[in-house]
């Protein structure tokens, strides 16, 4: 139990470091949009998501209708539903209903990524440890950014922007190197994502990720079905 919690916390450290810089940017943006430091930190604590929060703050600043808030959050965050279903297949028996209700709060792109890269089943303690550390990075980064504005010099701030993407590559490259099927799925998803970005600009980034991932995975599942025990 304690061991699992600690393992989760250690695995959460790179996530928290990446979050620090991203949420720092969110904090700056929130204050510029007229929110207080406390409000910015509360939004980060309740949502634990980057793109959704940034869009939400814009709607608040513009005084947009609640329906817009609902639709935008649904669109940007619907990818979490896919991740949640995928992760639900990897859960340990200890994951009872209350644990599922609690841990679902912490399904972010990065936490999902690190959890799905684990060879073993996911326990509640492991996920809580990771969520806790990531939460600290996310909320403190928001508060710092909101309070201090541009605290870090610009070149460092810019360079920090790539941290999370570097982590994503570290997760997908090793299995893509070992398995041709994973490599092909990754390549298809990247190709569709590029196509949407440059040719179908009306599609928002949240939808772009969903479309790319669903098509690539559907093709992968059709041509390279996995063995019975490998999920």
């Amino acid at each position: 139990m304690v061991k699992e919690l600690r393992r989760g916390m250690v695995h959460g450290i790179p996530i928290a470091l990446g979050y620090l810089s991203v949420s720092f940017g969110f904090g700056i943006k929130a204050v510029r949009s007229g929110l207080s430091v406390l409000t910015a930190a509360i939004i980060s604590a309740l949502n634990l998501t980057s793109a959704g929060q940034a869009a939400g703050v814009e709607i608040i600043a513009a005084g947009g209708p609640l329906l817009e808030m609902i639709l935008v959050q649904l669109t940007i965050n619907i990818r979490y539903s896919l991740m949640a279903i995928s992760l639900s297949q990897k859960l340990d028996e200890k994951f009872t209903f209350p644990h599922r209700l609690a841990a679902s709060y912490g399904i972010t792109d990065e936490i999902f990524a690190v959890c799905s890269a684990q060879e073993r089943k996911i326990t509640p303690a492991y996920m809580y440890g990771m969520i806790f550390v990531a939460f600290l990075g996310w909320v403190s980064g928001t508060a710092l950014g909101a309070a201090a504005g541009q605290l870090l010099p610009e070149p460092i701030n810019n360079a920090m922007g790539i941290v999370l993407y570097g982590m994503f590559l570290a997760i997908i490259v090793p299995p893509a190197r070992k398995k041709l099927s994973v490599f092909i799925v990754v390549a298809i998803a990247a190709a569709i994502s590029v196509l949407i970005k440059y040719c179908l600009e009306f599609i928002t980034s949240g939808f772009a990720v969903i479309i790319s991932a669903v098509i690539a995975s559907a093709v992968g599942a059709l041509f390279f079905p996995v063995k019975e025990d490998s999920v």
Binding site: R79, L82, M83, I85, S86, Q89, D109, F112, A113, S116, A117, I162, Y165, F168, L169, I171, I172, P175, A176, S181, V182, V185, V186, A187, I188, A189, A190, I192, S193, V194, K197, S205, A208, V209, S212, A213, V214, A216, S217, A218, G220, A221, F224, P225, V226, S230, V231
Partner: peptide, 20 residues
């Protein structure tokens, strides 16, 4: 099951490229 096995890699790839 195969579809869900590929989803994490596909999601991360689409999120990273070209955004990185």
């Amino acid at each position: 099951r195969s579809f869900l096995y590929y989803i994490p890699y596909a999601v991360l790839s689409a999120m990273t490229i070209p955004a990185i």
